[in-house]
Amino acid sequence: MNCSRREFLESGLKTILLAGLPLSAFEILKPEALASIMKGKGRRWAFLVDVTKCVGCGMCVKACKLENEVPYDTKVSRTWIERYVALYDGRVLIDSPMAGRDGFPRNDPQGQKVAKEDIAKAYFVPKLCNLCQKSPCVQVCPVGASHYTPEGIVLIDRSWCIGCGYCVMACPYGTR
């Protein structure tokens, strides 16, 4: 059988392309990919906060503390609000008095009086559990106490938690 150099290269290229095709088609057999095609079962809930609307009233912090019996008169809170005030002179005043529990009733970031004309940009950043789709706090838990339900809620198994605090460290929002 004769085979010119040109023919050899041509068929060689075709073989490689054809061989590559089914290999990429096998991707679909990966369990994750199959599941995403089937779109999973039922609803997956999410929790959203429109930070552009936050007026910093601090009601969420108060409610979180009362609901979860977090010592009320301490500064600790895992639902918290930060105020950012950027001034034209380059300073950025960031504060969160009592984690924002009593709101921000005065214009006194870090205890300083700032005039309206000096403020370049200012806003509140409410920090609440985002119920992440791939939560770091669930990923780092060594005992499976921090977990994710199929509906999309991040929970803590109180009877299973060993109190190691990894999830607290892992949370990128400081809300665990």
């Binding site: 369990p31 994750e32 089937m38 079962k41 669930v138 994710y148 339900t149 929970l155 198994d157 299973w160």
Partner: peptide
């Protein structure tokens, strides 16, 4: 338990079901 894949996932679906 079920999470992301029909067969569950070690990273995201490892927990005590009764806690739900």
């Amino acid at each position: 338990h079920l999470r992301d894949t029909p067969f569950g996932s070690y990273i995201w679906g490892y927990y005590r079901k009764g806690d739900e």
